[in-house]
Design a protein around this nucleic acid. Structure first.
Lengths: 142, 142
DNA sequence: AATTCTAATGCAACTCAGTTGCATTTGCAA
DNA sequence: TTGCAAATGCAACTGAGTTGCATTAGAATT
């Protein structure tokens, strides 16, 4: 993971400012082990003494995603989740309670990268990425 | 793909009725080569001379999903997509226009099944399934 | 330190997919 | 043919996410 100061430098180069909310959202996302939704980010900031409006939070994650610092995940729980971009991995999601567990699937990862290259050639799609998620019922919900 | 008549028998055993809308939705889903959203199903039925309300369509796909005949896909386009359950495969989705292409990834499929078995043991999650989608920008949108 | 420009913020009102309550219609079994 | 429960449609609702606009506040310049 990159030092947080270099991220802030990138923000400045983009003409963006270092507001308390922005710094806090970055720190929450970068430290979170799991993808986290806007509501979740809100509660974390609350604990840090910040109470931004939901509008601000949505605009903040948009900013981070459009700049490539964060990525969106649509895991089917009715709300989008976000994760720090350098933390790309796969997940295990409970179909009932939407609990998310991080997954170690590095073995598979490499084969995807290969597959993606040939896919890009064949299909004409650019800027390829992928999402692999496993869904099931967690022990609590069974 | 199972003969459509045996599907209808399964419906009856469940106490469900064979309404014109139900038959049409099944035929549309079972024949569709791509995942299709409720709005898309609606247009197909329109062409068949049926104009069910959106409420009916949502209830119909719920019925099919809860019975295991169809599966939901959340591909991030803002609306859920549905596919006939026996047609499990992976997709290539355009991040801009949300166009969906079906993908042949059978080689990978088998390794997932293996991975899922060990995952089920380790994690305690039951009823495991997965979703693998590739996202990029299609040639039209580039 | 004061000025200035523009990014960031909050409010309120909105959009849009999907849901729910309730009265009516219809499939189908007896 | 009758009667019950499933299916339907309407209208009103929910809840995530968005937008317009006026206000506040980083941070660069003087």
């Amino acid at each position: 993971m990159k030092p947080i100061q270099s991220i802030f430098d990138q923000f400045r180069q983009r003409g963006a400012r270092l507001t308390p909310v922005r710094k806090a959202v970055v720190s929450v996302l970068a430290k979170s082990k799991k993808p986290i939704c806007v509501e979740g980010i809100g509660s974390c900031l609350m604990r840090l003494g910040l109470k931004p409006s939901k509008v601000t939070l949505y605009r903040e994650v948009d900013f981070l995603v459009s700049g490539g610092w964060a990525t969106v995940l649509d895991l089917g729980g009715g709300r989008k989740c976000y994760e720090w971009a350098s933390e790309h991995h796969h997940h295990l999601v409970c179909k009932k309670c939407n609990r998310i567990e991080e997954l170690d699937a590095h073995e598979m990862e490499s084969s995807f990268v290969k597959f993606e290259k040939s896919l890009s050639r064949k299909s004409g799609f650019a800027d390829l990425g992928h999402s692999l998620e496993f869904y099931g019922i967690c022990n609590r919900c069974q």
